[in-house]
Structures are given as structure tokens and as C-alpha cells.
């Protein structure tokens, strides 16, 4: 097992190298240049500054030289400074992580809390009215464009009912609230975003859980268990459910990179300072150091996520062994 992990970890290095090369060249060869000083056209902004900046950023050097310079920095874990505000790229990313991570974790928990029981019940009562309405609802939510759903919810829950604030993270007087007040305030602000974020994933997982459970219930050991005279609840929940949950563990691993991935659309609508918008703005302004840092982080997380998924799968499923591979 440990040799397998080491091999996989070593395999990440060439892959990562490939990813950085490809993305470096894609983003540099794409038309457009950094727009650090040209976010709007202003005749008072002298064109000389742009040339001076290009020199300072090293953009006048040949591409492969630029790549090597970048690579040298990365090896020392120096991701450089943003072109837009000259802040260290890592600092800019780090300040966005807590929100994105928290939001996605909350959404993930919510998804599991809703999807697993719904999926299981659907499977047990397969083809019942309950099953069909769950299927229909999950398809329905899956079918709605995020921003549309978000706007509808905001209009209904925030404006009609006045339950939640429209956007933002905290109230303006947040710092003067008591600890409980702060917690309540945060929950009220994050409820709709988390809910909307969860809706897309909840549909998928419910379906997945349902088919796993149906599959599990078909297994011979279920019949054996029933024949042994075990109570139905024990059959369902300790035998079938356990096996049906195994593949879901994989999903957890695969959702690791997603935990740090934001969505521009979602963050724009709810005015949340997450990673999605940071990355989007970086691409739009051609903030090369920031784009590259994001790509590296996403790639590393994705690969680690895949690895964790594979390992955890092996741990929970004794039939899989990585020894001979």
C-alpha cells in the first residue's frame, strides 16, 4: 500500500509539470495582455507606464525564459505578486480560502444530510409515489440555472418573506454583536448561498445513493440475512446501507478539489468574496502570476483528491488491492 501511495505521489510531479507548461503557454498565447492600468480607458494614463510595467514584469523576455523564471520561483514556493495590486499572490488566495472552504463544506454536509436518507428511502420504496416525487424534484433542481434559482430564492425568501439578508457575509454592525448574535448573523447570511450551492449536488447524490442501495438490496447476502430472520431494519440499515455507502466515500475524495473551487456566478450574485471571482478576475485582467498559482493549487488538489478517493476505496473495499499494480 505505502509503495503504491509513493508511486502515485511521484506520478503527480510529471503531471503537474505538464499542467503548468500547458497552462502557462495557453494563457500567454491567448490574445490580450495584462490590464493592470487599463481597466478603463483614461487619457490621463500614459501609455509609457504600460511599457515600463511590461519590463518590470519581465513580459518582454522570450516565453520559455519567462517560464523558467516562473519555475525557479515556484520551486521555492514563491508564487510572485499580483499585477493588479502588487500583493503577494498567496496572500490574495489565502484570504479567500476560509469562506470558499466553509461554504463548500457546509454545502457538502447539507448534501449528504439530505441526499443519503432520501436516496435510501427512495430505493427501499422503489417505484412508489415517494420515489417518483424525489426523482422528479431532484431532476427539477438539477435542471435550473444557478443564477436563476438564486434570484428566485432571493426574491421569495429575502424580499417577500424577509427571512434572510440579500447578500454579503455579515451585517454592518456585526462587530458589535454578542458571540451568539454573530453566529446567528452568519448563519442567516450564509443560509441561501449554502442552500443554492447544495441544490445542484443534492440531485446527483440522491440518484447515486438510490441506485447504490437498490444494487445492494439485490445482493445475495441480503436474502441470506432476511432468511436468517434478521429484523428488516437491521437488514436494511446495517447490511445494505453499509455496502451502499462504500462508493459514496469515493465521491468525498473526488469532491476535495471542489471544496476550494468557487463559482463566479454564484459568488457574484450573492456578493461573496470567494475564490471563483478571484480567478475569474485574474483571467479577465490577465494577472498571470495569480492565474498560474490558482492552476497549480487546483491541479494539486485534484490529484490528491483522486488519490485519496482511490486509497479510501481500497480501504473500505477489501476486494481491491493495489499490491500487484
Amino acid at each position: 500500500m505505502s509503495t503504491y501511495i509513493i508511486r502515485r505521489l511521484l506520478g503527480i510531479i510529471p503531471l503537474l509539470f505538464g499542467i503548468t507548461v500547458v497552462s502557462f503557454f495557453i494563457i500567454r498565447l491567448a490574445p490580450g495582455k495584462p490590464v493592470a492600468v487599463e481597466q478603463s480607458l483614461n487619457p490621463r494614463v500614459s501609455p509609457e507606464l504600460r511599457l515600463r510595467l511590461e519590463k518590470q514584469f519581465g513580459l518582454d523576455k522570450p516565453l520559455h525564459v519567462q517560464y523558467l523564471i516562473w519555475m525557479k520561483q515556484i520551486v521555492r514556493l514563491d508564487f510572485g505578486r499580483s499585477y493588479i495590486d502588487s500583493r503577494p499572490v498567496m496572500e490574495k488566495i489565502a484570504e479567500r480560502i476560509p469562506l470558499t472552504l466553509g461554504l463548500n463544506l457546509a454545502a457538502l454536509v447539507l448534501i449528504f444530510l439530505i441526499a443519503v436518507p432520501l436516496g435510501v428511502r427512495s430505493a427501499i420504496k422503489a417505484d412508489s409515489a415517494f420515489d417518483h416525487s424525489v426523482t422528479f424534484l431532484s431532476f427539477l433542481f438539477f435542471a435550473a440555472p444557478t443564477f436563476w434559482l438564486a434570484l428566485l430564492f432571493m426574491q421569495f425568501f429575502s424580499i417577500q418573506l424577509g427571512w434572510f439578508p440579500i447578500s454579503g457575509l455579515t451585517s454592518l454592525d456585526f462587530e458589535y454583536f454578542s458571540a451568539w448574535g454573530k453566529a446567528g448573523d452568519s448563519i442567516r447570511h450564509l443560509f441561501l448561498p449554502v442552500f443554492v450551492a447544495a441544490i445542484g449536488g443534492f440531485a446527483g447524490l440522491t440518484r447515486y445513493m438510490r441506485s447504490n442501495m437498490i444494487e445492494a438490496l439485490r445482493q445475495p447476502y441480503i436474502a441470506t440475512a432476511r432468511a436468517k430472520g434478521l429484523p428488516e431494519s437491521a437488514v436494511l440499515y446495517s447490511h445494505a446501507l453499509r455496502n451502499a455507502l462504500l462508493p459514496v466515500v469515493t465521491i468525498l475524495g473526488l469532491s476535495i478539489p471542489g471544496l476550494l473551487g468557487g463559482s463566479v456566478i454564484f459568488e457574484s450574485i450573492f456578493a461573496l468574496p470567494g475564490i471563483g471571482r478571484l480567478f475569474y478576475e485574474a483571467v479577465m485582467t490577465r494577472d498571470y502570476p495569480l492565474i498560474m498559482a490558482e492552476v497549480v493549487i487546483t491541479a494539486v488538489l485534484t490529484m490528491l483528491g483522486n488519490l485519496i478517493a482511490d486509497i479510501s476505496y481500497a480501504c473500505v473495499d477489501p476486494r481491491i488491492s493495489y499490491k500487484e499494480r
Binding site: 503531471l15 498565447l29 491567448a30 480567478f279 490558482e294
Partner: peptide, 22 residues
């Protein structure tokens, strides 16, 4: 399959933006 892995590692959105810009 490594190519596919590489593609999957990029945020889809990044690829799309890069290509849209192209």
C-alpha cells in the same frame, strides 16, 4: 489518459475562458 487527467485538473471554466479569448 494522462491527457484526460490534465484536462480534468483544470477548472473547466479556465479552459473555456482561455479558448474564448483565443
Amino acid at each position: 489518459m494522462r491527457c484526460a487527467d490534465v484536462m480534468l485538473c483544470f477548472p473547466t471554466f479556465f479552459l473555456i475562458l482561455a479558448v474564448v479569448a483565443f
